Amino acid sequence: MTPTSSTTAPAFDVVVIGAGIVGLAHAYEALLQGLSVAVVDRAGGAVHGASVRNFGHACITPQTGEARGYATEARRRWLDLAGAAGFTARESGTVVVARTAAELAVVEEYAASDPDTERLDARAVVDRVPVDPDPVVGGAFLPLDLQVDPREAAPAIATWLASQGVRFSWRTTALTVESGRVTTSRATFEADRIVVCTNHDVDRLFPRLAEQADVVRCRLHMLRADVDLRFPLTVPLFTGWSLLRYSGFAAMPSAGALRESLRASLPAGVAWDLNQMYTSPFDGSLIIGDTHVRDVDAPPFQDEAGFELVIAETERLFGVERIRVRERWQGVYASAPGREFLIEEPLPGVHVVTVTTGIGMTTGLGIAPSVLAPRGTATSVPESSTAVAV
């Protein structure tokens, strides 16, 4: 029987609010610890959040600091879960294509500083990815990165967790959270520990926490298309715009010069905060994106100019005259200035975990072990996560 708002669910060791990758990561960690777990989500399944709207790219290699540690642990867990839950996690690596001297300078500096990164000459790049050879000048290979199908992975993990005894309460909205208790639209859940993983909707349950951290919603132009490539794209692909987005690249001495070079060559790219990158789902289509617009709310109306920009740059990169768009959508994730994570315990036993940049798929599975470490165990906290009010 479906519980109603007047019922009380059985007590659990852990209740997780939110069934995206970050929420599922905490349910998985609790399961590994032998704890009883319930997951509450307002949707009918893992079908519409940030975890199914993205590139399916676990970008391990160019992370730094706490993000690199989380990403490294997440990589191992992605591979373990793929085997257990029956979805594909491709150990693909990522290719970075450099098409100007400014882009190549950043790539070479990073490759010199990171032993995991392989520098590629122009010929190696065009042999690995189907870009227009002119004007490729070089690039790099990031070997640790993974690729999954974002529409397959989260639902598969949820299904497997349910088969292992994790209780899922779908179409259930968390109304209030206090130490030891979550009141929802269907039942009251009691738990020793509660983990709130609602991404950009953290402001619904903890508005002061979100406001203190300046959490807003970042909206993306994304699309899926068929493109007549020279040969199939089998790895995630970064361009010069990507070098400004990931902390390892962005810290290089030449990153400032690259930014100015891109601003001069394509002002619209800077205006739309472009990250021109690509992954290929296993059906051979391309996931293409993306732009970034930040605000407190995420209205559904998208300016066609954003789509026109990513389409035009895709045609130029691959040297094709036209792409055939299958789907367009708006990606949305949490964003906060100067931080990658909001990880707090605003109430005893209540943890709020939000990835405040576009690396949730990359790091989410690796965050959970530190958040759910047994009490009294030392945990690592991201340097960017400072104490904020509820």
Rank of each mutant, 00 (worst) to 15 (best):
A27T: 05
R75I: 08
V37S: 00
T61P: 06
V47I: 10
E66Q: 14
H26I: 13
V37Y: 01
R76V: 14
A43E: 13
G69A: 09
H26G: 11
P62M: 03
L32A: 04
E29C: 06
A25M: 10
G44S: 04
R75F: 10
C59D: 10
A27Q: 08
L32I: 02
A71H: 07
A30S: 08
W78K: 11
A67M: 11
Q63Y: 06
S51L: 03
A71Y: 05
V40N: 00
G69S: 09
C59F: 10
G56V: 00
Q63W: 07
T61N: 09
V52N: 02
G44Y: 02
G83W: 10
C59V: 13
A71V: 04
E73K: 06
G69L: 14
H48N: 11
A43C: 07
V40D: 00
Q63S: 11
R68W: 07
V47N: 07
G65M: 11
R42W: 01
V52W: 03
T72K: 08
L79R: 14
G69P: 05
T64Q: 13
C59W: 12
A67E: 11
Q33C: 02
N54W: 10
A71N: 05
Q33F: 02
A58G: 13
G56H: 01
Q33T: 03
A71I: 09
G49H: 04
T61I: 03
A30K: 05
Q33R: 12
R53E: 04
A67C: 11
R75S: 13
S51R: 01
R76Y: 13
V47S: 11
G56L: 04
V37C: 01
E29M: 04
R76M: 14
R68D: 06
D80Q: 15
L81P: 12
G65H: 09
A25L: 09
R76L: 15
W78Y: 15
T64P: 09
Q33G: 08
G56Y: 01
V52D: 02
A74H: 07
G65E: 14
A58M: 11
S36T: 12
L32G: 08
E29T: 11
P62N: 05
G65I: 07
H48L: 08
V47R: 07
I60D: 07
R42S: 06
A30H: 03
H57R: 02
A46C: 13
N54H: 08
R76I: 14
C59E: 12
L32W: 02
S51F: 04
P62C: 03
H48I: 07
A84R: 15
S36Q: 06
R53K: 05
G45L: 01
G65S: 13
V37W: 01
R53Y: 00
